[in-house]
Simulated scan of single mutants.
Amino acid sequence: MTPSYGPGSPWSDLERPPLNAASLRRALLRPGGRWTSLDIVPATGSTNSDLAARAATLPEGAILLAEEQTAGRGRLDRTWSAPARSGLFFSVLLKPDVPVARLAWLPLLTGVAAATGLTRAAGVDMALKWPNDLMVKVEGEAGKEERKAGGILAERAGDDGIVVGLGLNVTLRKEELPVPTAGSLLLANAISTDRDTLLRAVLRSLEQWYGRWTAAGGDPAACGLAEAYTAGCATLGRTVRAELPGDRTLTGEAVAIDGDGRLVVAPPGGEREAVGAGDVVHLRPVD
């Protein structure tokens, strides 16, 4: 069958081919594995919202991908949008049997898994900005600049489900960036921007980390998650400004990640405070 190349065709931009659903299912849906189904839609508002709406009827391990996401959501209700087939936009349904107090580690775990998989598959050094941004280095006017290439959003779905969504800029060109502080794997000189390869790497890494974490009852120290996140977190050691609920701000050095996954900030001359919600801005690079 000859593919169509007209407007709206998935083959209209040959530098951005569609995801191969059949190949991905063969690679990821294995007997006894974590992933149980994989669906790809041409476009949707939000894969998180769509998967959450179906969570009650699906087993753990369902994956939903969109070639284009028109109303993707990040933390603090920020939007996430990009040209069709220029990135990875997907959500997974997980039902972790761990204490509720440890669920805050799930988005951090996803960040570690994504950074690990992408570093291996794309050949790009990925860093984590607390709590759930994926950062890359992009050549800018003043040399290498730290840019956000991806983000993670975890949301409750039903009584026992959590939908974890990930948006990643893969082949966005400079003129396509939504804001100057954004980046992409292409702009970070990735050795591969094949989305099938990158998706397999991320989901296999997530399967491994999630399995270790749940087997340890959600204990981040016992499964090595706390150590891995600390090692890959670009926020630690930086002077940061935390914009907190209630229009309060906290400025100081990010000194640690505590046992609940919160960022510990030490203000000059003040007591350390653990930040569990809010926006964190990096004010200076690590020396």
Score class of each variant (00 low, 15 high):
A84W: 00
L109N: 05
L118W: 01
G150Q: 10
L177F: 06
T119P: 02
L76Q: 10
T116W: 12
G161A: 04
L185A: 08
L166K: 01
G161K: 10
L172T: 00
L185S: 10
E175H: 14
K137Q: 15
N169T: 10
R85G: 02
L94K: 03
V164G: 03
W130Y: 04
A182Y: 02
T181A: 15
K144G: 15
A157C: 12
L88P: 01
F90M: 07
G150A: 09
E176M: 07
V124K: 07
G158T: 07
V98I: 15
V179L: 12
D125Y: 08
I162C: 12
V179Q: 15
D159H: 15
A182T: 09
S184H: 06
T119G: 15
L172F: 08
V112M: 02
L106W: 05
T116C: 06
A113I: 03
L118T: 01
V179N: 09
V100R: 14
A127G: 15
E175S: 13
G111L: 05
A121R: 09
L168R: 03
L128Y: 08
V136S: 00
V138T: 08
L134T: 05
E176A: 12
G117I: 02
S91W: 00
L187K: 11
G117R: 03
F89N: 01
L185P: 02
R120L: 05
I162W: 11
G123A: 11
G165M: 02
E139L: 13
L76C: 10
T116F: 02
N132I: 01
P178Y: 11
K137N: 11
